[in-house]
Structure formats: C-alpha cells, structure tokens
C-alpha cells in the first residue's frame, strides 16, 4: 500500500466555526493498555455541523466519542466543550456542560428492569426536581411530553412495556426517545445504524439530527455509504489518528479503500 497522507484540506468545517466551537480536541492522546487508542488528535466541531466518523474497527471512533461526552478523560491534551476545558472545571460545572451534550452509546445504557416510560423520562431528570421525579417513578404516570417523544420514535404502544422485553431496534429507539427529552444542544452517537436496514438507519439518523437543538451531531458509522447523505463533514480515523477530514462530496472510493485497508 502506498503511504496514505492525512487528507485534511481545512474546508471540512472551518467555515462554520466563527462562533465558539461545540467540541474541540487539542493534541489528545488516550492510552489503552500498551497502545494508543487516540494519538495526538486535534479536532474542532462547530455548531450545526453534522460529522460522520469513519474508520476501521479499533481506529479510535468510540474512544473519541467517549471523550466528547465526558465519559473518558484524555491521558494528555485537552477536551473542550463549548469552549471550556473539561479538565479545569469543577465537578458541578462539568456536569452542566456534559448535560448539554446527548450521547447514544452502543450499549444504549438503558435500565433493563424498568418500564419504557421510566427510561424515557430519565432523559429530563436534569430539568425536573427530585420530588416530581420520585412521584413519577412510583405512580408510573406518563405525561404528554413522554408520549410525544415515544410517538416520534414510533413506539407509542411500548409506554408501559418492560424494557428488557423489547427487540434490539426498539430498545435503541427508546434510547433515542430519552435523548429527545434531554433537549441536548449537540448529540453524539456510536454506530447507531450498524444493525439496521438502510431505510430505518436513515430514519434514526434524521431523528438524531432532530434531537440536537443546534443540529450539531457527531456520529460514528459502520457503512461509509450513509456518510454521503446526511452529513456535512466526514472525519476518518485510522490507528488513532485523523486520516481524513473532508466534505462528503470529496470522499472518493480510493480514499475509503486506503482508510479501511489492512496494514
């Protein structure tokens, strides 16, 4: 294989970055065991940008998303959310910032034993007081807000079903409904389309985009083809480094072949 140089032309997203960026990584390295999951990565994502994250398995996509959501801290370098360095913030302020970011993980992070409505309502725990939260948990009462988001993910019938009885795709939509209730400004999603057929995958991607109030999304994808439609920017990771950073229009099959080529 010929040496693949990082194709970073700068037009990927800088035009939109006049105001404070939503996400920013500065020279971030994450060490997992003996290898570097991320290696000196710089990345800036501005408001409204829709970034598709591509790359072979183990390239560092999930680690990058975990950093942006505040779930992981970097070993070196800085992670900035809305212009503030997470490592320098007090615990409370840090949570205020991470609460403005919604995250859909591969595990979905749902509570399996409770009814769907509680999992959905959990999305707005940051907005309501402890008293109402407890009362809703005990009385299993669903209000219009919960019904509305469940309708949006096309699961109105599942309101009182136990989460563990749903199929994988249904559980994913429950997680999306929870995300909708969080009213996050930006949304991160880790391979949300990997187990879905193309049409459903596009629906989920649209929902995710709609769930971020500023429209900012960073989504890792298994299928590069989907990146060409819904996104404004494609970032390719390879061995923990940014290998591609382009508008989707400039994404060629050759570039993809190099990105996914075996070492």
């Amino acid at each position: 294989m010929s040496g693949l140089r990082p194709v970073v032309d700068g037009t990927g997203g800088s035009a939109l970055c006049r105001s404070a960026p939503v996400f920013e990584l500065r020279g971030v390295t994450v060490v997992r065991g003996t290898h570097r999951a991320l290696d000196e990565v710089d990345l800036v994502v501005g408001p409204g940008e829709r970034v598709a994250l591509l790359g072979p398995s183990g390239a560092g996509k999930s680690t990058l998303l975990a950093l942006l959501s505040g779930a992981t801290d970097p070993d070196t370098g800085a992670v900035l959310l809305f212009g503030e360095d997470l490592a320098r913030l007090a615990h409370r302020r840090r949570r205020e910032l991470t609460a403005r970011v919604g995250a859909l993980t591969q595990d979905l992070d749902l509570v399996e034993h409770v009814r769907v409505l509680h999992n959905v309502a959990a999305g707005r725990l940051g907005r309501i007081g402890l008293g109402p939260a407890l009362l809703r948990l005990l009385t299993a009462r669903a209000d219009d807000e919960v019904r509305e988001v469940l309708a949006r993910v096309d699961l109105p019938w599942a309101l009182h079903a136990r989460t563990q009885h749903l199929s994988g795709g249904e559980r994913q939509r429950v997680a999306v409904a929870r995300l909708l209730l969080q009213r996050a400004e930006a949304v991160l999603a880790d391979e949300p389309a990997s187990s879905l057929d193309p049409t459903t995958a596009r629906d989920v991607l649209e929902l995710l985009r709609g769930s971020a109030t500023t429209g900012t999304t960073v989504v890792s994808l298994h299928q590069p083809s989907a990146a060409r439609h819904t996104f404004t920017r494609v970032v390719g990771l390879r061995r923990g480094r940014v290998a591609l950073d382009l508008p989707p229009g400039r994404l060629t099959d050759d570039l993809l072949d190099d990105l996914y080529a075996r070492a």
């Binding site: 991470t98 995250a103 979905l108 992070d109 959990a122 402890l130």
Partner: peptide, 15 residues
C-alpha cells in the same frame, strides 16, 4: 451497563 453514569452526565441529580 452505564445507565447510571449516562444519566449523571446527562444532568440528572445524584439521588
């Protein structure tokens, strides 16, 4: 699963 940590990051208070 990371439900608890995820809720905390999403802004839910401790209790």
């Amino acid at each position: 699963g990371g439900a608890h940590a995820a809720l905390r990051r999403a802004g839910a208070p401790r209790t």
